[in-house]
Design a protein around this nucleic acid. Structure first.
Lengths: 210, 210
DNA sequence: TTTTTATTGTTAATCAATTAACAATGTTTA
DNA sequence: TAAACATTGTTAATTGATTAACAATAAAAA
């Protein structure tokens, strides 16, 4: 199962979220067009994504919700799961930690880090906050491979250096500083201002049309 | 200036962020390859994006930082600016409000909303929080056209109904509920779990390779 | 049972985005 | 000044993603 398109990975994660909701509601099967309309995409796209991960059903009563969840899990998750840390426990760090905490058994936020001594050595949003001074040690002790960066922008570059040096393999960067990392570290960046500006641009376009 | 690719809009927003930093540091000109390496993309892509917005320079000493900022502003911003509101002022809502506040003159968060009476009628993260009960009135009074949704997932669908009914034209959805909106409303969705799972997937892939 | 309908899986076609290639032309160096 | 170099702007080629089209077939209706 090599080389799935990046876009497909994102959608699979979203499908699973929806499928877990369906399961909780007792829904056992779901049609491609149902899944599609829940995500504002076409049924063909859903079927194609599902084809790519090698799941199929002989029935014409939609996909087996439980089975599909498992197959997506085989793609996205690792057997033992991965450990992540949130670096910088301000409002955004707290939001992510609290929101994520316990939602995915194969992906855990096992630590948060901050420089502020008022925050360290306490449990915040359900996870213990360590001092940045202990970062390298804790990465080893807790086998952390993913860093979620929510520090102030001016500290981002320097903190990233430490993440990479300590052996972190994937970084999700929420600071408004673009980072450069070595090619063996996966980097995903997200800037909220850009997202808001995109919405603003399309609102502007719509206003022009009418 | 019609029909720029969506991806280009996102990058223009990011270029501007970087250019504003350059300006603050006193840098007056920037090469396409500099801008490119700051964003982990190719110089060609930068030049192409800039071509698409109709800016060009006769010099071979890079782009004029100030001029480029202005041209990007002409594309993204409206003359009078647009007003946005954050709906649901938990940790994430607070993070966005505080982070964004005052950063862009043509895009303002003018109100936040919540159902919790402990939060309403107070200034939170620098912006006044109103009761959800007053939502429709305040959208009119403050001319709000963009809604940033940070309410609990189970309330997302119902709140979205109200946003659309009240005339909101663009929605940025940070809840983990996929929304359906009429085609004249622009919707951008972002789920943090999906982003973390994407990082996890690529970390897994990398581990497999080695 | 037979026919109709609905749904999946998949290939081919289209559309969108990125990258390569290169002409034009300032700028720098010899 | 002349030659070498670096940089931009742009078209063409390539790559990647989405959508259309349709065969196969289970399910439902007649």
């Amino acid at each position: 199962m090599n080389k799935l398109p990046e876009k497909t990975i994102g959608r699979l994660s979203e499908y699973r979220r929806t499928l877990l909701n369906c399961l909780a509601k007792g829904k056992t099967h779901i049609y491609s067009h149902e899944l599609a309309s829940l995500h504002n995409i076409t049924p063909v796209q859903v079927r194609r994504d599902i084809m790519l991960i090698g799941y199929s059903t002989t029935l014409k009563k939609g996909y087996d919700v439980k089975a599909l969840i498992d197959v997506i899990g085989d793609i996205i998750d690792t057997e033992d799961g991965l450990n992540a840390a949130v670096i910088g426990i301000g409002n955004l760090g707290k939001a992510i930690t609290a929101y994520f905490n316990g939602k995915r058994s194969k992906l855990r936020i096992v630590a948060t880090f901050d420089v502020n001594p008022d925050k360290t050595n306490r449990v915040i949003s359900g996870v213990k906050c360590y001092a940045m001074a202990d970062f390298e040690k804790m990465v080893k002790d807790l086998d952390i491979s993913i860093g979620i960066l929510t520090v102030p922008p001016e500290e981002a570059a320097q903190v990233t250096e430490r993440l990479i040096m300590s052996g972190i393999k994937g970084i999700l960067n929420y600071t408004s500083t673009s980072l450069n990392v070595s090619p063996n570290v996966y980097l995903e960046e997200y800037d909220m201002i850009t997202s808001i500006e995109k919405v603003a641009y399309f609102v502007k376009q719509q206003n022009k049309e009418s």
